[in-house]
Design a binder for these strands. Structure first.
Lengths: 217, 217
DNA sequence: TCAATATGACTTCTGAGTAAGTTACCTCCG
DNA sequence: CGGAGGTAACTTACTCAGAAGTCATATTGA
């Protein structure tokens, strides 16, 4: 049956926004949603709504939900890994380096805190290939930096069990993650105030008396 | 059309397993799946399969997916919060108490490491009521304990900014979480070896030289 | 007029939740 | 002791909603 020939205004048709620009807008919106809700809980239709365009346009430009996530990932990854590597190239070691990293992180994440979440999203479909692999690309870079910093610190202290390094690296990443998360819950904090707070806390924790059996062992 | 009168053996009918026992089995399986995959990625049908029963039985007994999760939560919560409170009643303070807590945690989680995950599952639907509220019930208890320990430690060090306490509590919970997660990825470790590792790492980190501007500020 | 930009209205699939019926145990009456 | 029937334990086979992904079509700048 042919469609009724009634004059029905459609919203279709170009709005004069070039593809590159639209893609940028979409990626920005999508990053925020993915970062806030997680991959699984994010619906493409929702992203389309918030971006003020329609779902098929997203599929036109990004191919699939994973493709969209991938685009967000690469933008965020370039920013993040780049900054962290910049810090790592500095000559700080041990806790000094840790603090510098946190400072860089806070400054970097100030305008768009969600991008951090993309790399530590537990809801992305696991698998040897696909998104998971791309995430690994970046987390490996980040972990390598952390591992190097942690390893250096442990070596200075005369410890060199590789498993110790691995465990402490995991802990360190979690510490960074938790501070970012806490910051997200306390929007009044500035990067500077967060950094100061970290300096203060480092001081307190490290100044605390060691338990007897730690020194004894 | 009437059903064919052919003799078709159905699998229905009681298998003689009393409700309480069945519920226990289901909760055990469900806890593992929820804890491993997260709430969102877990399908009720999958749980039913693994438990060797059918989906409607789960709905019969637990009402809904949330109801099932809730049952897992309460079992796990009773175990977890109870143990942590036991440790907290001890007379250790500061880092000593931290180590004792970790030790208790590792021992407790040895047979069933997943239960920890239930309380820190980012994929549960947010909302003022429902599961989220029940989770909060337990995390509040856990957080309160952590907060108390952290607060005591900061007070001993002469610091008492409540936001500092809150932030350090978040960090401490993340540290515990990351150690459990790391352990999950290294199944060869025993509770004892994990505890030793923590003692060692505490020693190294706390023995590290303080950055200049930490002491300066 | 053609290519780029855009959309409404599908199809398809997955997973939560349900209706209705099946089987086995248990009790109580004879 | 034997069978009627009540009830608890269980399943098959659905419905229904929401989200991924697709198709055909519409609009407009160059």
């Amino acid at each position: 049956m042919p469609r009724p020939t009634v004059a029905r205004r459609s919203n279709a048709g170009t709005k004069g926004v070039p593809r590159a620009e639209r893609e940028g807008q979409i990626v920005q919106v999508a990053t925020e949603v993915f970062g806030t809700l997680g991959f699984a809980a994010t619906s493409v239709a929702d992203v389309a709504d918030r971006a003020g365009i329609s779902k098929p346009l997203i599929y036109n430009y990004f191919g699939s939900k994973e493709g969209l996530f991938s685009a967000c990932l690469h933008r965020a990854g370039a920013i993040l890994a780049g900054e962290l590597e910049r810090v790592a190239r500095g000559d700080a070691v041990g806790l000094e380096r840790a603090l510098r990293t946190l400072e860089g992180l806070f400054t970097l994440l100030e305008p768009q805190p969600w991008i951090w979440r993309l790399f530590f999203d537990p809801t992305v479909p696991r698998g040897e290939e696909g998104i998971a692999a791309e995430i690994a690309l970046y987390t490996d870079r980040i972990t390598a930096l952390a591992d190097q910093g942690v390893g250096e610190m442990l070596r200075l202290a005369g410890a060199d069990d590789p498993l110790d390094v691995a465990a402490l690296t995991a802990v360190w990443l979690a510490v960074a993650d938790s501070l970012v998360t806490w910051w997200l819950d306390h929007p009044d904090e500035t990067p500077a105030s967060m950094t100061e707070r970290c300096v203060r806390l480092f001081g307190v924790v490290l100044g605390a008396p060691l338990p007897a059996h730690v020194t004894a062992d």
